[in-house]
Structures are given as C-alpha cells and as structure tokens.
C-alpha cells in the first residue's frame, strides 16, 4: 500500500482522510514531548497561561532522544510508550493538536477523544531509534531544557514513517491486527 504524505498543520478534513492501518510519511515540523512536558503543558492549559508553541493543527511525538554525537542533528529517537500520556491527551487534543505519535495502546477515553476532537494516533516502530533519527533533519529545544531528554523540541522531519493506529472513526489497528492473527 502506497504511503500517504502528510504535514502540519493538519485540518479536520486531513484527519478524516486517514484510516487505521494507513501508512504515512510525515514531513515538516513535529514537536517532541513526553511525560514531564505533558504534565507542564496541561498545567499551563488549566491555568490558561501561554504555551511554548501553538498547538493548532500540530503533531506531538512522544520521544526522549539520546544526546547528539558531534556531527549529528539528534541522537537515536524512537517512540516511547504512549499509554502514559493518556491522562493528558484528551486535553491536548481539545486545544488543537491533531496527531500524536508513539507506540502501544491507548485508553478508551483517549480513543474516544480522537473521535470527539478529530485527531489521529500514529505509531512509529518502537526500538528503531537509530533508523528513525535519519529522518530528522533539524532539532531545537523550544522549552524546558532542564528536563534533559524530556525537554520540548521542535523537529523538522522528512518522510518520517508511521502507521495510523486510532483514527477519528473509532477504529483501532492493534485490535484489528490481533483479531486477524489470533489462533484459538
């Protein structure tokens, strides 16, 4: 199956054009943020304070990269387990984020939020950090440098490969894949 090419900012129509199981290649800007950064972002949203970047139509990638070696843009940079972000994701989607990238299953409330706010959940190959780093062309810390690997980074990617897991229609690739291959 031909991969669909997508880039930020995503519109509702872009999201509705993607289905669980679709392979995508992402180019352009994505924001790296994981556990500690999500906690801070949601605290700012609850206090209605200014955010370090505009969420509208953007991607968040759950990643905490290794330090760049001399000559590298970024170190190894594969996805971390997404479930830990479940308590924050509905709030993040409500405020404009359209796509989140990680690995592993999401809670029922988060899956519902992808439908309610027209968002998608994408998985990249967990443990392929050296390979995925090759698609990252620029990386810059935009907030919370004190968090080290958990700082928010603005990444510019080219043909970053991912697969749609949860779409805005309520489909779930993990459940469908498992149903297809389970041996009873």
């Amino acid at each position: 199956m031909e991969a669909k090419r997508i880039r930020a900012p995503l519109t509702d129509a872009d999201v509705m054009g993607l289905k669980a199981g679709d392979n995508v290649l992402i180019s352009g800007v994505i924001y790296a943020a994981r556990d500690a950064a999500h906690k801070k972002l949601v605290e700012l949203l609850e206090k209605k304070e200014a955010l370090p970047f505009d969420l509208k139509g953007q991607f968040i990638y759950y990643v905490g990269p290794t330090p760049a070696k001399p000559g590298q843009v970024i170190g190894s940079a594969g996805p971390t387990t997404s479930g830990r972000m479940d308590s924050y994701t509905p709030k993040i989607l409500e405020n404009g984020i359209k796509a989140v990238i990680g690995k592993g299953s999401r809670s029922a409330a988060t899956v519902q939020a992808f439908q309610d706010y027209k968002g998608i959940y994408l998985a990249a190959t967990g443990g392929a950090g050296a390979l995925l780093a090759k698609t990252i062309k620029e990386a810059e810390i935009v907030a919370y440098p004190e968090l080290g690997p958990e700082a928010i980074r603005c990444l510019v990617v080219e043909d970053f490969p991912a697969t749609v897991i949860n779409d805005a229609y309520g489909n779930d690739l993990y459940e469908e894949g498992r149903r297809q291959y389970v041996v009873k």
């Binding site: 905490g64 290794t66 190894s76 443990g127 392929a128 950090g129 050296a130």
Partner: peptide, 24 residues
Amino acid sequence: EVFKQLLENARIAREEEVPMCQDT
C-alpha cells in the same frame, strides 16, 4: 516490515556506533 526495519536499525547502530534505541 517491522523485522526489516529492526535489522536495518541494528545495522545503523553498529556501523555508526549509536544507540539502537533512545531508551538506553
């Protein structure tokens, strides 16, 4: 396809002496 990516990832890590996964 996942296995293909994992083999390629291991090759890059070995040849370039970079961590195979960001979670070291």
